[in-house]
Design a protein around this nucleic acid. Structure first.
Length: 304
DNA sequence: AATGACTCCAACCGCCTCGCT
DNA sequence: AAGCGAGGCGGTTGGAGTCAT
């Protein structure tokens, strides 16, 4: 039954490969607002040029608020090994015993590490294992494929993706991350709703994605409802950011759709968000003495 | 510093299962 | 009961990052 059916979508008309932050935002926003009753129709409704299966996979393995990132504990490893002994490669069933872990992640951990460990029992303790906390293990907080920050739980601070550069060094002030404290010092809303955490990372201009399209620049917002850090597409010319602040409706609507709450205040309308966003950025500019040189301002707009 | 080998993991592919008609 | 379509699952792969030389 159901065999030999047609492909789930027209491969020639859908985007493939790594997801851009803007796509993630779109998917998150849509699902938070409308749920995912029908994966097949979701991409079209959400305005994504993706296959429904791809959306489902991205959501389940990566964007879901309850997905747990980071290293596997000894207990989790033992659970995997034990369950694998009894039921084999039933990754989804194993995942059911590990809240927050996805079948894909468990499968990867098994294939890349646990299987090898079992066939070559280590003589050293677990502190040297590849998944143990180490500088390189910070990779667990970053999507290595598209360099986007992982949304939930483990990572308190997104790592600026290299493909979406921080403010260029040639600008008179280089800011890769605006801390909550810095943010609080320049806004008159909630001084620091998330003490000690980076609240708002301003990133650089958009860069080409795998399809040769140019992603818009984006920043990160922490969603008060889910605690997730969401990439927010900045729908204005980044290189005029500090000269002529014009957040547009799509920007504000994206924030609204996420339930993003920058200031500890309930967001009322896209217009208000745009206005507050504009005010905040203006204060940031003044407080931190940001300037954009003529040269920087002349970056071709066509690239954005 | 350059290069090749290796590792890791997100994403894809194709098949299977389930539910609806 | 049979056909169909959507969701789910497990195997595999591509490519970015890291390490070794």
């Amino acid at each position: 039954m159901g065999r030999g059916r047609a492909p789930c979508c027209d491969k020639s008309k859908v985007k493939r490969g790594p997801w851009s932050p803007a796509e993630d935002l779109r998917l998150i926003s849509f699902i938070q607002k409308f749920g995912h009753d029908n994966w097949r129709s979701l991409p079209k409704q959400a305005g994504l040029m993706r296959c429904g299966k791809s959306c489902r996979l991205r959501w389940i393995n990566y964007l879901r608020p309850d997905v747990k990132r980071g290293n596997f504990s000894k207990e989790e490893e033992d659970t995997i090994i034990s369950l694998h002994n009894s039921i084999g490669n039933k990754w989804s069933r194993i995942a059911a015993h590990l809240p927050g872990r996805t079948d894909n992640e468990i499968k990867n951990v098994w294939n890349t590490y646990l299987k090898k460990r079992l066939s070559n029992p280590p003589s050293h303790d677990s502190s040297s294992l590849p998944h143990s906390p180490s500088p390189s293990s910070s990779s667990s907080t970053v999507d290595k494929v598209n360099n986007a920050p992982l949304p939930p739980s483990v990572s308190p601070k997104p790592v600026p993706p290299p493909t979406h550069n921080t403010l260029r060094d040639s600008s008179t002030s280089t800011i890769s991350s605006v801390s909550a404290q810095e943010y609080g010092s320049v806004c008159n809303f909630d001084p620091d709703p998330f003490p000690g955490e980076s609240l708002f990372d301003l990133l650089g201009p958009g860069s080409e994605n795998t399809l040769g399209e140019v992603d818009k620049p984006y920043c990160f917002l922490e969603d008060n409802n889910t605690g997730m850090e969401l990439p927010l597409e900045l729908d204005y010319d980044f290189w005029n950011l500090f000269d002529n602040l014009e957040p547009t409706r799509p920007c504000a609507e994206a924030m609204d759709a996420c339930g993003a709450n920058l200031w500890g205040e309930e967001i009322q309308s896209p217009g208000e968000i745009a206005e507050e966003n504009r005010n905040w950025l203006r204060r940031l500019e003044e407080e931190l003495g940001l300037e954009v040189s003529e040269e920087d301002s002349s970056v071709p707009r066509d690239d954005l």
